[in-house]
């Protein structure tokens, strides 16, 4: 399409501003992590890898990162079966009270994170489960569950119901039909949904802040606590770990399902 010049200019100026604002923190954190000075200053003091060497030695940071990985893994493992089943059910079947179910399953989004976090903190506290890793994983799964259901139901919407009927007609019993027809069809949704769940749980801050104590602190909470006291370049170096994880997940998303999946009209 031949767009008028004024339209092209307006769009590109705004997109350019968005691009700068979106990328600035990432680029600056990357740059600051390589500084050779003891404080973060502009212009930077020169290039060194000393802060990476420093964080590689720090046991508390490594432990916190491992805990974050464990939380994200638990969250994803719970979300995959639960979200897949719910997504397929919502997109394939005519459900009575469908609106009610939708509103109910959207509760994790409509209840503010601080509300969910404090509610779960009180609940887990009463059950004596605080101070462990897995309740944090469960909590991260609850608050992000709609992402998983969306991803799966978007894929399941594209599945022709006749295919399942055809499988049944050829003599496939229900579970086989599910495993060989339904599940492969929704696989892109399951993959993109579980990658989303993983990275969001890895980064989850507020709910972790409420549910962790000194023994179970996760990496985002650890970074937050350190920001409060003093800003040193080692924080930038740890942050680069998150940037690397994000880049890895994006690469996986692109390879496995294609990033375009998020642009599909639903």
């Amino acid at each position: 399409m031949n767009a008028p010049l004024s339209k092209t200019i307006v769009i590109w100026v705004m997109v350019g501003m968005v691009l700068i604002v979106l990328s600035a923190p990432t680029l600056v954190v990357l740059g600051a992590s390589f500084t050779s000075g003891n404080i973060i200053a502009f212009p930077p003091d020169g290039f060194s890898l000393q802060w990476y060497a420093k964080i590689a030695m720090a046991a508390d940071l490594r432990d916190a990162f491992m805990r974050s990985l464990a939380v994200a893994t638990i969250c994803t493992l719970i979300a995959i079966p639960i979200g897949t089943l719910a997504g397929i059910a919502l997109s394939k079947y005519a459900i009575r009270f469908e609106k009610t179910f939708q509103v109910y399953l959207l509760l994790p989004f409509t209840i503010p994170l601080i509300g969910s976090g404090i509610g779960l903190m009180l609940l887990f506290g009463q059950m004596g489960m605080l101070g462990q890793i897995w309740p944090i994983g469960v909590a991260c799964c609850v608050i992000n569950l709609p992402f998983m259901i969306w991803a799966v139901s978007a894929s399941a919407g594209g599945l022709d119901p006749d295919l399942e009927l055809a499988a049944a007609n050829c003599g496939a019993p229900p579970i086989s039909t599910f495993l060989h027809v339904t599940l492969p069809a929704v696989m892109p949704g399951v993959i993109s949904g579980s990658l989303l769940m993983f990275i969001l749980a890895l980064n989850e801050f507020l709910v972790s802040l409420l549910l962790t104590d000194a023994r179970t602190v996760t990496l985002p909470v650890q970074i937050y606590n350190s920001i409060r006291s003093i800003i040193t370049p080692d924080l930038a170096a740890i942050s680069v770990v998150f940037i690397a994880c994000a880049a890895l997940v994006i690469a996986l998303l692109d390879r496995l399902v294609g990033l375009d999946i998020f642009l599909k009209s639903k």
């Binding site: 979106l22 990328s23 600035a24 923190p25 990432t26 600056v28 954190v29 990275i199 890895l202 980064n203 989850e204 801050f205 985002p220 970074i223 937050y224 920001i227 800003i231 924080l235 930038a236 942050s239 998150f242 940037i243 994880c245 994000a246 880049a247 997940v249 994006i250 998303l253 990033l259």
Partner: peptide, 14 residues
């Protein structure tokens, strides 16, 4: 996606 996946704390730190 890069900033989306990096998390709030790191972005605020930036």
């Amino acid at each position: 996606f890069l900033p989306f996946f990096i998390g709030q704390v790191v972005r605020a730190y930036g």
